[in-house]
Every structure is written in structure tokens, then in C-alpha cells.
């Protein structure tokens, strides 16, 4: 079974420690959210876990092997990666971009085998992109492009996925769609580690949340166990309130009160 295991990982960039003594694991079937303030070391942790940068201490094991011992293609067949910045160099068609997910299987958009074609078609269908298949990706909205990138990593059929801010700058509908796709991926036997910034989104969708600050994991576990005002204060330095409406967590961040009150009150005030 595919497994990513990080033990006491240390990463320094330009002499500064960015990731310190981080241990975490990712297995098929779970959607794990990685939360923390900007500069906490989340992206660096993902990159080191993929073997894109070498660890300065501790270890990373992908199916029991350090990623550096695997060829880039062999590593990419085990774990997919959706980076935070996704610049597209050319106005490629959606289908061709999704087909690039098959690179580690030896395919290119111009040369797809039957298995590649099946994987690409399934990814396009699952992400609801059929009607955009032949569109140039630069004519799509940001939300639609996010779905294309999801389809691309899904097409790789890698059992594990590391995704960096998959729903940043998306409208609520596209946020729900992308989170739904990632969760479905986990339910169908994939393991997904997602860097998120929206606490409410993480709390609703993730099986586990890893809380990171200054390069360290400060808490980790199910939202029900770790989503507390104490954790939020320790991670973000923000006094937040957490309610539970049945099994639904509601996180309230500080800010000014509304002078007009809720919509009902406003109506009353107007008729009076």
C-alpha cells in the first residue's frame, strides 16, 4: 500500500531553518489538511516530501524508499503534486493539459496509449470538464482552470496527492467542487494532503488537520479534537471562537460588530 512517511524532517533554506522536526504520514483513504500562517513552511514541507529539495535532517520515505532513490518518473507515479503557482506557458487545449498528467507513464499529449486515454477521459469526466475539452485553457476562468489542474493530477492515477492551496482565490461554488473532488478521491482510495488557508473549509472537509507554525507541527488530529480556540491562538495568534452546530464546526474570527444587526432586525427597524 502506498504510504508517505516523514520523520523528524529538517529543511534549511539559505541557512534559515524552514521546517523543523516535522513528522507526519499520509495513507490512502484520507484527506489531510495542512494549515498554518504564511511562512510556516507548508510549501517547503511538501517540496521536501516530494524530494524536490533535499532534507537537512530526518527522513522522507515513499513506500519505504527515500524519494531521491526513485527516478523522477517513478516518484511521480506514486505521488502527484499540484503546486501553488500554475503558470501556463502556451494556450494549450484542456485535453492536452490533462494528458500531461500521464507524463510519468511515458506519454505526451501527442502520443497517448489506451490506458493513458482512459485515465485522461475519466479525469475530464470526473472534474466535469467535458464541454471544455477542446477549449484553449487560457480562455477559461480561474475556477475552471483550477478544475483543469485537478484533472491533470487525477489523470496521473498516483495513489497519493500533495496539493498546495487548491482552492485559493476560488469562488464558493468552485471551492466546493474542488474540495468535493479531493474528498471523493480520498474516499475512492487515494491519499490527499492539501495545504489550505480557509479554516472553515479544512474543518468541514478534512479527515485530519495538521497545524503548522514556524516550521513545526504544533497540533495534529481530527477537526473535532484539534479545532479549538487554543489551537487557533497558538497557530495564528488570533482570538477565535469555535461553535459546533450538531456535527458542523463554525469558526468565528474577530472583527467589528455589524451596527445594523442581522437582516430580520433591519426590516423591523425599517417598518418601525
Amino acid at each position: 500500500m502506498a504510504e508517505l512517511r516523514v520523520r523528524n524532517l529538517e529543511v534549511r533554506l539559505g541557512g534559515r531553518p524552514i521546517v523543523r522536526e516535522v513528522s507526519l504520514s499520509l495513507r490512502p483513504g484520507e484527506l489531510v489538511a495542512l494549515l498554518g500562517p504564511n511562512g510556516a513552511g507548508k510549501t517547503t514541507l511538501l517540496r521536501a516530501a516530494l524530494g524536490l529539495i533535499p532534507p537537512d535532517g530526518g527522513s522522507v520515505r515513499l513506500d519505504g524508499l527515500p524519494p531521491s532513490r526513485l527516478s523522477p518518473a517513478a516518484r511521480a507515479r506514486r505521488v502527484g503534486y499540484l503546486p501553488q503557482h500554475r503558470p501556463l506557458a502556451w494556450p494549450n487545449r484542456v485535453r492536452d493539459l490533462v494528458a500531461l498528467g500521464r507524463f510519468a507513464h511515458g506519454a505526451t499529449p501527442g502520443r497517448l496509449g489506451p490506458a493513458d486515454r482512459r485515465a485522461v477521459d475519466a479525469a475530464i469526466r470526473n472534474c466535469g470538464l467535458e464541454r471544455f475539452r477542446s477549449r484553449a485553457a487560457d480562455t477559461l476562468s480561474g475556477g475552471e482552470q483550477a478544475l483543469v489542474h485537478c484533472a491533470r493530477v487525477f489523470a496521473s492515477e498516483a495513489p497519493l496527492l500533495l496539493v498546495d492551496e487548491p482552492v485559493a482565490a476560488l469562488d464558493p461554488r468552485h471551492q466546493l467542487r474542488v474540495m468535493g473532488l479531493l474528498r471523493r478521491r480520498a474516499r475512492e482510495g487515494g491519499g490527499v494532503l492539501a495545504v489550505l488557508h480557509d479554516i472553515a473549509v479544512a474543518a468541514r472537509w478534512a479527515d485530519r488537520i495538521c497545524w503548522m507554525r514556524d516550521g513545526r507541527l504544533v497540533a495534529g488530529g481530527a477537526p473535532g479534537a484539534t479545532l479549538t480556540p487554543e489551537t487557533l491562538a497558538a497557530v495564528y495568534d488570533v482570538p477565535a471562537t469555535v461553535f459546533w452546530e450538531g456535527r458542523t464546526p463554525i469558526v468565528i474570527l474577530p472583527g467589528p460588530e455589524r451596527p445594523e444587526g442581522p437582516p430580520g432586525d433591519e426590516e423591523k427597524a425599517g417598518s418601525a
Binding site: 511521480a76 503534486y81 499540484l82 503546486p83 503557482h85 506557458a89 507524463f103 499529449p109 501527442g110 491533470r152
Partner: peptide, 20 residues
């Protein structure tokens, strides 16, 4: 030339997709 296709996605994503 195969690697040039995947570089369309940017260097970071290309490296993640298995390009050396």
C-alpha cells in the same frame, strides 16, 4: 523533446509530474 511538453505547466509542476 518529450520533456518540453510537460514544461508547459511550469518548472515546479513539471518536476512534480516526473521531469528531471
Amino acid at each position: 523533446r518529450r520533456g518540453l511538453a510537460v514544461l508547459t505547466l511550469g518548472e515546479e509542476a513539471a518536476a512534480g509530474a516526473g521531469l528531471d
